[in-house]
Every structure is written in structure tokens, then in C-alpha cells.
């Protein structure tokens, strides 16, 4: 494992009254860089019970998620494939880790929690509760043009569970 923070960029100059300032290293945390390079649960799930395609036409990010949901409504297995920026890849990878073994009820609560985390106007501390490792994506809040990169996989997953089709974040 390389040193956790190879990035030595300075903090950007702070404007007076700016409450929510993030540096690049808050966005590209080592966990994110690592999940981008080595996405977990990557590839096709042959015996999927649910699947959906997600596309962000602005960035060209393209994801396909696969799920196997058992009779008790529990996510037995989950995989994804596709290509996109580091934020979208890492977010999808972290999502698959977070969802394995969860119930659909838990998925809905994580979906809401994650959405609040990346769109919250606060410092995010309140929003990180219960999200575990997913909290590393909170830095995306400060980069409005990139929020959709982080949420594409979650919308795609929601579509896969609720219906089949193509999710769009526009």
C-alpha cells in the first residue's frame, strides 16, 4: 500500500465567509483512488435477478449494475461494470461493498443517507452517521459539477431494484 496521501497540494485560498472549503485531497482521498484503480465486485453477474444501465451524457460515464436478490428481499450478490471517472468508479465500487447482504429496506435508507451526504450544505458530520466507508465520498459536496458522478451508481441501483431501464443523471 503506498503512502496514504501522496498529494501535497496547498489548501486553496479561503474566501471570507466561505464555510465549506474542500481541498482536492478531500475529494480524491486514497480510498477513492484505490477503488478507482481496483474496483471491487467488478464484472458481470451471470445469475442476476435484477440489472440496470446508467448513463451520464454530460460526462459519458456508463455503468451497468447487477443484483441477485433472494426470497427474503436480501441482496445476496451485487456487481457492476462500466467506465467513467474516478468518482463514479469508486462510488460504484464502494456501493457494491456496502450493499452486499443488506435488505432492500436497508438499501433505501442508505440511498437516502448517501444522497444527503453528497448534497448536504453542512460540513457533513451529521450526514456521515451510518454510512461507514461511503462517507469518504462526502468531499464531492464541494465540487457541484461532480456530484452526479457520485450518485449515478445509486440511481442506477435504484432503477435495477424498482424496474429495469437506463438511469440518467442530467
Amino acid at each position: 500500500m503506498p503512502c496514504s496521501r501522496p498529494w501535497n497540494g496547498r489548501r486553496p485560498c479561503l474566501h471570507e465567509g466561505e464555510a465549506n472549503v474542500f481541498d482536492l485531497k478531500d475529494l480524491y482521498q486514497q480510498v477513492i483512488v484505490d477503488h478507482n484503480k481496483h474496483p471491487r465486485n467488478f464484472g458481470r453477474l451471470e445469475d442476476a435477478s435484477h440489472e440496470a444501465e446508467g448513463y451520464n451524457p454530460l460526462c459519458g460515464d456508463r455503468l451497468h449494475v447487477y443484483l441477485k436478490i433472494d426470497d427474503q428481499g436480501r441482496i445476496e450478490d451485487v456487481r457492476f461494470e462500466g467506465e467513467g471517472c474516478a468518482i463514479s468508479m469508486a462510488s460504484a465500487s464502494l456501493m457494491t461493498e456496502a450493499l452486499k447482504g443488506r435488505t432492500l429496506q436497508e438499501f433505501r435508507s442508505l440511498f437516502e443517507g448517501f444522497h444527503a451526504l453528497v448534497t448536504s450544505s453542512g460540513d457533513g458530520a451529521d450526514d456521515e452517521a451510518g454510512l461507514g466507508k461511503l462517507a469518504v465520498l462526502g468531499g464531492v459536496r464541494a465540487f457541484p459539477s461532480r456530484i452526479k458522478c457520485a450518485t449515478l451508481c445509486w440511481h442506477t441501483m435504484k432503477n435495477a431494484i424498482e424496474r429495469s431501464g437506463v438511469a440518467r443523471t442530467e
Binding site: G60, G84, C85, C149
Partner: peptide, 30 residues
């Protein structure tokens, strides 16, 4: 290699460098 253009766009922006990352309204070229 290994860095998506949109990540480069964000990183460059934080360094004060304004470039375009995307398909440049020329998807067939991409």
C-alpha cells in the same frame, strides 16, 4: 493513462488551469 479526463478537469481547475474535458460536441471523433 489511468486518469479520466473529468478527474483531470477538476484537478486542473483547482490549480487555476481552465481546460475542457469532454467530447467537445464531437462524439463521432471520440
Amino acid at each position: 493513462e489511468g486518469i479520466h479526463p473529468h478527474d483531470l478537469g477538476t484537478i486542473l481547475d483547482r490549480e487555476g488551469v481552465a481546460i475542457r474535458a469532454g467530447h467537445h460536441c464531437a462524439m463521432p471523433v471520440m
